[in-house]
Computed example of a mutant assay.
Amino acid sequence: MSREATWWLLSDLHLGMSDDDPRCPGKMLPEFLRSEVLAASAPQQHVVFVGDTFELAGCAEDESLARLESIFTRHLDTFWALEECAARGVQLHFVCGNHDVELVRPSVADRLSALLSPLEATRVRVYPWLLHVPHVLVAEHGHQHHALHRMPELLRTAVSGTDQLDLPPLAAWNAHRSGSLLSRTVAVARACLASERAERRIRKLEYDELLQAESLRLAFDEVTLRELARLSRFRTVTAVPVTATRMVLTAAGRSVAGEVAPASAARFARTLEAHGSGVDWYVTGHTHRALESALGSCPTRYVNTGTWSSDVRGRGPDQSDRRAFPYAVVDVARDGATSGGLRYWRPDGG
């Protein structure tokens, strides 16, 4: 196949201001970029970080900027490798996840671009919700389909440039970890009410205008994007019991998710197909379970890029082998045909 472009996709590195994870994702990423990406020869090269690349959650705007710079200071080799990729023409894409949602703030996104590609800022792009390559792939972190992580009005911050980021229920619980059980419960109750109100607001004309602007930026059909934004919905009455059940199962050491594509993935792909916007690949992260799967009769192939952290929850080779790191690759031929799927990279070349 004569390649026109190659896309590498990975997620959930959770790079923070320390590097105490036994899998050392901050040390592994530069090796991966140099051995896989910079050594490749496709005319167009793209690296997509499908969310939770950084640990920024819960920061105010000024703190987000400072923490982002501190993370790169702590992971200098990662910073240099990303900078080298951008300087050599590799397009870097960052999709926001629930742990680095602060990237939706224009000031934080601009700072990321300035750090990694000071001479050509367009080499670095940030996506508040999803990345779309027509007929090829859609990539989103996946937390928008997880009720307690869902932020219905995510685009409002990205477009308006405000500092306001409403915490989803689970983030509100974690943000009040040092408080009493009562204070944490009250925080979650308020977050649930805020999420319910936000779900109603995204069905109004004002939010439709934001979706229209985003559809133009993403080369996406406006009607399709509007339906995708409403595909999953937060409802307190169903979210809280399900989450409580999962917490009990987790505490008992039992798995809370099977090794199959989530139902939301099939709904997402069918929605794209129904509107004539189908893609070959739908890629997410978030669950920390690396997986490639068919989506029933839908021609779209699903890939979850797992995690490079030690919090592996799937049954793939990365569960037993800390030197196996999951990622997805999609090669695009000159005639538009694609190939690829889930892969595992090892620093020793295995």
Rank of each mutant, 00 (worst) to 15 (best):
A175F: 13
A147D: 07
Q91F: 06
A198T: 05
L33Q: 10
P168W: 01
A219H: 11
R67F: 03
C192F: 13
G349L: 06
F49G: 10
R267S: 12
V332N: 04
Q44C: 11
V48M: 04
T300C: 12
A40F: 10
V279L: 02
H286P: 08
A172W: 01
H286V: 08
L103Q: 02
D20V: 11
A158N: 02
P168T: 02
G161K: 03
T224K: 09
L225D: 03
E83V: 05
L181R: 01
F94Q: 06
E196C: 06
L148S: 08
T53V: 05
R323V: 09
G142K: 03
V104I: 14
F72L: 00
A219R: 13
W7M: 05
Q91E: 11
S293I: 01
L65M: 08
G58Y: 01
G16C: 04
P347R: 09
V133T: 11
R246Q: 14
T307Q: 08
L216D: 12
E4A: 15
P152L: 09
V330W: 03
C192L: 04
L92F: 01
M1Q: 09
W308M: 10
A251K: 11
M28W: 09
V138S: 10
A60F: 04
L112M: 06
I202L: 14
T122G: 13
V256H: 07
P299M: 03
H176P: 04
V279I: 03
T338S: 07
H143V: 06
E36A: 12
M28T: 14
A191Y: 00
W129F: 01
F268Y: 15
P241R: 00
S113H: 02
G278F: 02
S277W: 05
R301E: 07
N304V: 03
L13T: 04
H176Y: 10
N304H: 07
V260D: 12
N174P: 02
I202A: 04
L216K: 08
Y327N: 04
A337K: 11
P169S: 10
V138T: 15
L10P: 07
D311L: 08
N174A: 14
L205D: 15
T236H: 05
R111L: 03
L249F: 08
N174I: 12
V133C: 09
R150L: 05
T305R: 03
W80P: 00
E209Q: 14
Y302G: 02
P326A: 02
L65A: 04
D163C: 00
Q44L: 14
T162C: 05
T236N: 05
A121N: 14
H99E: 10
H288K: 04
V260C: 09
V330T: 09
A60H: 05
H288N: 07
P25R: 09
D280M: 01
D62M: 04
Q212M: 11
L291Y: 03
A274R: 13
H146K: 09
R226E: 13
G16Y: 00
A147K: 08
S264A: 15
P118T: 11
G258S: 12
D221I: 05
L76P: 11
H143G: 07
R233I: 12
G314C: 06
G306K: 03
L131N: 06
